[in-house]
Design a protein around this nucleic acid. Structure first.
Lengths: 253, 253
DNA sequence: CTTGACCTTGTCGCAGCGTCAGGGTTTCTA
DNA sequence: TAGAAACCCTGACGCTGCGACAAGGTCAAG
């Protein structure tokens, strides 16, 4: 047989057969006078074994290993390992499928957050928050929440969102005050008022974390970046609000 | 933030972040005086979006596409496509897992065919055939059956194995006769007897196919190879047996 | 004699980074 | 104050299992 024939016979491409030769999986057969490879029954039998194994999902080096030891013992081990692997993959895929269908339901239910798919917790928080008026600060805040959604590990997320829940109700009071400070300097007189209102709607527990609420090591540079992203007066107001929350927490303890 | 910080924050490696820069997924941020990349909040937000999307299983180019159109419409399409894809993958994996567990059961039940895992049909055929005495011809035959297992498409397999079923009962009579011919020439007097016995235990329907029983286009070269793999007298016996079967079929019709 | 279907070797490409190699910078520590 | 640890930089190769060329040679049929 020539390479195309044996390949068609076993159900692979000639390229694959040559690849198996190159990788030492299959011995090179004798050549005809014209240089063509000439395959016999033994080659076909071997190639069929290779195909059965790769069809099961074994990698080529695993196949090589299984073909190497003529005992079937190694094969069983490999198959067991493979079974574990497939089980893991399947559960991963199923998890992703569930997340996906939930997201698609959300999306088709009308609202798809323009910042991409978010965690269920944050999605419900934003849904409860409703439509805010046109506000640069609100937009920025939503982006930061979306960031936190990735930063905060899954087990913390529910708790953190719970904390935010209370703050969300007063959002419509705070954002205008902060928006008004967008062009102001740090010593603007409106800073104190904005900080007072902001602090009033933040829960005590928030002060325990970094200013941002993220309990991670990179917190300080993240906090720096967050403040650098604000106008001077806004930054001052948030700083002040954090101090107020901390002080309030001390008193309440 | 430096690259390691933003990467840890979002939960990817610095290498991945640089990769995203290279592939245009994420804009290169400004550099510090020392050449270090300096990341801000906007970068973190973007990177977080990228991570959420890749976590869902999107490819990087799909992510790029989704980030490009600020409408969420394209996103939904991509997600639907991805959901289909995942469904397909899951069923594939489940099918393989079922095959695997069946094979592992077989293997742990004692007998694992040394030629690797076979189809259920062939496995049961071989099991019913039981332990044959030490016979080169029987060994070769099993290998060829294993080859057929791959060659024959799934829907034909059951029928073909059914045909073999009858032949298997007389295997212990035929193999010794063929083994005895291993060193003989084609004009050996024992050829006729071997062919007669062999033909007697093959069903009529077998003659309808190629000598090998494989109904495919490459049949002739496969048949050539099969006969080339036998000793001259064995080849002659099988040829003769096939002719006997064909003649018998003509008569019975 | 040409056309088309084969065969040959060799090379690049693919996804998504991991992993050196070979350098500089910053920072903590003894 | 020096040295080590822990960062950062660019650039390049590696991995899986082949697919897809390129640039030829070979063979059967029209």
């Amino acid at each position: 047989m020539r390479i195309g024939e044996i390949a068609a016979l076993v159900g692979v491409t000639p390229r694959a057969v040559r690849h198996y030769h190159q990788s030492g999986l299959l011995p090179e057969p004798a050549r005809r006078a014209n240089g063509y490879r000439e395959y016999g029954v033994r080659d076909a039998v071997l190639l069929a074994r290779v195909r059965r194994l790769t069809e099961l999902g074994l990698g080529l080096d695993e196949v090589r290993g299984v073909l190497a030891d003529d005992e079937g013992r190694g094969l069983v081990e490999v198959l067991e390992e493979l079974a574990e692997d497939l089980a893991r993959q399947e559960s991963e895929i199923r998890a992703r499928r569930e997340r996906l269908s939930a997201l698609l339901d959300e999306a088709r239910a009308g609202r798809m957050p323009a910042d991409g798919p978010l965690s269920p917790e944050l999605t419900s928080l934003l849904a409860g928050l409703g439509e805010l008026p046109e506000s640069p600060m609100a937009a920025k805040d939503r982006q930061i929440l979306a960031l936190m959604d990735v930063v905060v590990p899954e087990e913390e997320r529910a708790r953190l969102m719970g904390l935010m829940e209370g703050a969300a109700e007063h959002a419509h009071e705070v954002y205008p005050l902060l928006d008004a400070l967008s062009g102001a300097e740090a010593d603007d007189p409106r800073v104190a008022e904005a900080a007072r209102v902001l602090a009033a709607c933040l829960p005590d527990e928030l002060g325990v974390h970094m200013p941002s609420g993220a309990p991670d090591e990179a917190g300080t540079s993240l906090a720096d970046a967050l403040f650098a992203d604000l106008a001077p007066a806004q930054s001052a107001a948030v700083h002040l609000a954090m101090r107020l929350v901390r002080e309030r927490r001390e008193q309440n303890r």
